[in-house]
Design a protein around this nucleic acid. Structure first.
Lengths: 219, 219
DNA sequence: ACAAGTATGTTGAAATTTCAACAGATGGAG
DNA sequence: CTCCATCTGTTGAAATTTCAACATACTTGT
């Protein structure tokens, strides 16, 4: 656990928690750390939503797969970020999504009930954690607004361009990398992969963007 | 203010706040109540995100209008529910959406900074409000997941059916009313209105649904 | 270096959506 | 009751997306 302190201190969930308190707190929260190989399912749709996951290393994807096997990618969650918190905090009976390791990763799982319901020893950190959770959920809501703004566009081209503009803004540069391969990008934008590839080629020919693999540039 | 106590007590934001404390608390939060006519803009895109709105009567819509004038409806917010909280809590500089009165309504506006940052008098209710906000944001996140599940479907028919199934589940009955007219439903599902009308007709002819105005039934 | 598996780009056909235009239905105001 | 504005449903044409199939490029493990 101790070796992850540098990551944990950058985790917004633990913002303003004194380092001394952190380890004790995690103990109290029933924290446990697990490693997952790429593509491994960390939290499965349908299971009870008890855990908040903290990405210590690597990254995970929150996805939903429908009857027909179509995958929809909701978010990509990277190091020191958190997943599953909305379902655990809302205390839903079953997870509506699946969380999958996007690469080999180390994950810390917290029992959310231990955060929500003050323990007997009445640890002082609950209030701070709840505040941090609130902040985190507000931020996540913004990300969903973003995703909806992107996918509400009616054409593949507009979805792609809107996505790329958000990424450029986030990177603070007109040249940037995206965290998705083509199929994943299609599953995030909710469009057909081959159509997406065609659109990227077209935009490139028109001189609107440059791209090579996962690196894009807006011109 | 006092006349709204019955509504305020059912508002999840004030759950477990003693009625005696409520009025004092609202005072401390700089609460003010305003009335709006139908279609009036309550919070405008681009403005600073300082306020949490509480719907005391009537209902409002959270919408985004893009360059081309295409409207996208994000959510409909009814009595005793809250809006704007995600932006205010995340302390974004400017609102990414617009909130519009869906019908004549009475709205209570709270200064979010007064909730987030404990006041000098160190009122005891901050912790409770923050907990309630956290719960609310978690629930709102679920609603966004739902909206994304709906709009991620590739055809108008599937979007509509997925939406109707959620509504049926919510109503606890296969017959239910929806809060949208045709154009609004199209703007929520992110599809073309005329195509939506055509699809509804088709589903009716096929005997999959019954519908008249805003009342639908799944068969 | 090779083979096998995966990812990407390309294409054309089929299905679907969007768009524009209009007609009938509905609802309010006077 | 009538008029006017709005809403809803219908249609056909144009644009777009999806789908399936395939060729090429890239990766990975051996």
């Amino acid at each position: 656990m101790r070796k992850f302190l540098p990551v944990l201190r950058t985790c917004p969930l633990f913002a303003e928690v004194a380092e001394d308190d952190l380890l004790r707190m995690l103990q109290c929260l029933g924290a446990r750390i697990e490693s997952f190989d790429k593509k491994y399912t960390i939290l499965a749709e349908g299971n009870p939503a008890r855990y908040i996951g903290v990405v210590l290393s690597g990254s995970v994807q929150v996805v939903r797969i429908d009857y027909y096997g179509n995958r929809s990618i909701l978010t990509e969650v990277g190091q020191s970020d958190v997943f599953g918190e909305a379902f655990a905090c809302a205390e839903v009976q079953s997870m509506p999504v699946t969380v999958i390791a996007n690469e080999p990763c180390e994950i810390m799982l917290l029992e959310c009930s231990h955060i929500l319901h003050t323990c007997q020893s009445n640890c002082g950190f609950h209030q701070k954690l709840i505040f941090n959770l609130m902040k985190d959920l507000a931020t996540k809501t913004l990300l969903f607004h973003q995703k909806i703004e992107i996918t509400s566009k009616r054409s593949t081209r507009e979805k792609l361009m809107t996505y790329l503009m958000f990424q450029a803004k986030k990177a603070g540069s007109s040249r940037f990398e995206i965290p998705f391969d083509r199929q994943e990008l299609a599953d995030y934008l909710e469009v057909d992969r081959s159509g997406l590839s065609a659109e990227i080629s077209k935009l490139r020919k028109e001189g609107v963007i440059e791209s090579e693999k996962n690196t894009f540039a807006l011109l």
